[in-house]
Design a protein around this nucleic acid. Structure first.
Lengths: 333, 333
DNA sequence: GAAGGGGCCGTGAACGTTCACGACGCGAGC
DNA sequence: GCTCGCGTCGTGAACGTTCACGGCCCCTTC
C-alpha cells in the first residue's frame, strides 16, 4: 500500500457526498435514506445506510442547522457545581429547558483565568442564565449582547433581565420565630467586609429591641462555620442563637456545637440560609431560609426565553422578577 | 406605517448581509470588523459595529462552524443532578473538558419518557459519556453510533468504551478494618432483590469467619436508610456495625442511630459507600468506600476523546479501564 | 511623470445540508 | 400508440460564514 493519505482512511470526517459516491447515488437520496423520508426504494435505502455505516458518516449539525430550524441551546453559568447550592437549580433548569426543546450547556466559572472558555461558551449558545457572583464579561467584539438573565445579582446592575431573591420578609419571620422562642443574645455570622444579609438580620433584631452581635467568618464553607462557631463560643459564652451565613456554613456551626457538647436547639438555636435539600441529611435538621428553587428556575427560563423570542425587550416590565425566601422551620431552632 | 412585515422590525435574525447593507460595505468588511481583523479603517469599523448593534446581529454558530474548525461538544448524561453522587463527577468533567476546549451539554435521564430529548441531544453532540444505569438508546436512523463511554455500566455490555468502578479490594479492606475493631455482628443493607455490593461484603465477612446478615431496604435514599436502620435495631439489638448501601442511605442510618440514642462508633459502627464530599457535612464524618472522582472523570474523558479522534478503536485495549475504590476512614467506625 | 507599494475594500468560492423542482422509466388506461 | 400518473431519483439553489485573491486609490520615490 502507498504511504501518505491514500483513499483508504481519510482522516477527514465523511460527508454526505462521500456516502453518495460510495453508494452510487445522489446527495438527496442519502438524505432520504438517513432521515427516513418517503420516495425511496427499500433496496437503495439499505445500500445507502450500509455505505453510511461503513464510512462512519454522521450528518454535520452545522450544515443541518443552517437549513432546518436549529435546536436552541441555553448556556447556564454556575459558580461551582461542588457547592450543593447549585445542582438543585441546575437540575431544575435542565428539566424545564428540555421540556421547552432547548439543550443546556453548563459551565462553571472558569472565566476568571482566561477568556478562552468564555468566548467558546458565548459563541455556541443562544441565551445565557448567569447564576454567579460576578457579571458575565461583555463581548470582546463590539456586538449586541445575547439574551441574558442574572439570578440574584445582588446590587450589581444588569441590563437585560434579572431574578432577584428577596430575603427581607423571611428575615423578619425568622427573627420573630427566634425571638418568640426566647432568643435574646444572637450572633450573626458575617463576611469580613460586611454583607447585606447580616445587616438585615441585625436590623430585624433591633426592631425587636434585641442587639445582635456580628462574627466575621473568613470563609463561608464548612471549615469557616466550624472555626467561627468555636470562636463565638469562647468569646460569647452565653450566646443563645447562631445565624449562619448559608447552609454549608450552618453545617459547620452544627458540628462545632456538637463537638463542644452544646445542645441544639436546647441551649443554642441555629439558623441557616439556602434551604438546601441536603439540609435534611444532617441532624438536627437545619431551620433555614428556603427558596422555591424550581420556581426560580422557571422564572429565569421564562424571562430568558422571552428575551430570546423578542416578546420581551430588555427595559420592559416583566424583565425584573422578585422571588421571596420563606422560613422553613426544622429541628435546629 | 404599512402593516405586515415592513423593513422596520424583521422577525428573522439579522445576517451578515443585512449588516453589510446597513453599513454600506461588503460581507468581508463586516467579518473584519466583527472579528477584530487587521486591514480595516477605524472609522468604518466603528460604523459597521454600530450597524451590527443596531440590528442585533450575532454571527450564526452554524454558518461559522461550517468554515472554521468547530468547537466540539461533549454530551454528559447523568441520572439525577439532585443526587449528590453526580455533581462531583459532572464538575470534574466540566473542568477537564473546558481545559481540552470542549463544551459540555448536560442532560438528566429524561430519555425514558419520550425519545425527543434523546434525538435532540444526540444530534447536537460529538461524543457521549453516559453515567446512567440504563444504556443509551441506539440511533433510530441506521447510522454509525457516536463515540460513547459508559461509567460503571455494571454487568451491561457496552461496545465502545467503559470505565469500570472496582469495589472488590476496598470491600476487603473495609471488612478488615471493621473486623480489627471488633465487629462480629454486622448487618449489610441490601436491595430487595439483592445486589453485587452487598454480596461482596457478605463474602468478605465470611472469609474472616463472620456471618453478616442482610437487611433489605425499600429505597436507597435518606428515608430508606433511616427506616431500615430502625428496623434493624429492633430485630437485631446486638448489631455492632451497619454497612449502608450508599452514602445517602448512610446519612439516614446515622440519623436513626442518633434518634435512638445509640453511640457511633462506640456501640455501632457505620460504613458508607460513595465517598461523597458532603459526607464531611454530617457528624460523625462517615467512613466510606471512596472513589477518586477526578480520576474517573479524567479517564472517561481520555477514552471518549481518543475514540472521537480515532486514535482508539472500539475494540482495542485501552477502551476498558478499571478504577478501584479505596477505603476512606472517617469518624463513624 | 511613471512605477512601485501599502492601506483598504470587494468578489467568487467553499463548507455540508436540505428544499423545490424537474427528469426518467414503467405500467395502466383510453 | 399516446398520454397520464406514479414511483424513484437527480440537479440547482439556498442557508450564513470565512478564505483566497484581486482591484482600487493615494502617497511615495526616483
Amino acid at each position: 500500500m502507498p504511504p501518505g493519505p491514500g483513499p483508504g482512511t481519510p482522516p477527514r470526517p465523511a460527508t454526505i457526498k462521500d456516502v453518495a459516491a460510495a453508494a452510487g447515488v445522489s446527495r438527496q437520496t442519502v438524505t432520504r435514506a438517513v432521515n427516513a423520508m418517503p420516495g425511496i426504494n427499500d433496496a437503495t435505502r439499505e445500500r445507502v445506510l450500509a455505505a453510511a455505516r461503513e464510512l462512519g458518516y454522521r450528518p454535520s449539525r452545522f450544515g443541518r442547522g443552517l437549513v432546518v430550524p436549529p435546536t436552541r441551546t441555553l448556556g447556564l453559568l454556575v459558580e461551582d457545581l461542588t457547592n450543593p447550592y447549585y445542582p438543585e437549580l441546575a437540575s431544575a433548569v435542565l428539566r424545564l429547558a428540555a421540556q421547552a426543546g432547548w439543550n443546556v450547556v453548563l459551565a462553571e466559572r472558569a472565566w476568571a483565568a482566561d477568556a478562552a472558555p468564555a468566548e467558546r461558551f458565548g459563541a455556541e449558545v443562544d441565551a445565557v442564565v448567569n447564576f454567579t457572583a460576578r457579571p458575565v464579561p461583555g463581548r470582546s467584539d463590539g456586538l449586541a449582547e445575547l439574551p441574558l438573565v442574572e439570578i440574584d445579582p445582588e446590587n450589581r446592575e444588569s441590563a437585560q433581565g434579572r431574578v432577584d431573591l428577596d430575603m427581607s420578609a423571611a428575615v423578619v419571620a425568622a427573627v420573630a420565630h427566634l425571638h418568640e422562642r426566647g432568643v435574646r443574645r444572637p450572633v450573626v455570622l458575617d463576611l469580613p467586609h460586611g454583607s447585606t444579609r447580616a445587616a438585615a438580620f441585625v436590623a430585624a433584631f433591633a426592631d425587636r429591641g434585641t442587639s445582635a452581635r456580628r462574627a466575621p467568618t473568613a470563609t463561608t464553607d464548612l471549615a469557616g462555620g466550624l472555626a467561627t462557631a468555636e470562636r463565638v463560643l469562647r468569646e460569647v459564652p452565653d450566646v443563645d442563637a447562631l445565624v449562619a451565613f448559608n447552609d454549608v456554613t450552618g453545617f459547620g456551626v452544627l458540628r462545632a456545637l456538637r463537638l463542644a457538647g452544646v445542645d441544639v436547639p436546647g441551649r443554642v438555636r441555629v439558623l441557616g440560609i439556602d434551604g438546601l435539600a441536603i439540609g435534611s441529611f444532617v441532624t438536627p435538621r437545619l431551620t433555614t431560609l428556603a427558596l422555591d428553587v424550581p420556581l426560580v428556575a422557571r422564572t429565569a427560563l421564562e424571562v430568558v426565553l422571552a428575551l430570546h423570542a423578542g416578546t420581551l425587550a430588555p427595559g420592559e416590565p416583566g424583565t425584573h422578577r422578585r422571588i421571596p425566601y420563606r422560613l422553613d422551620v426544622g429541628e435546629s431552632t
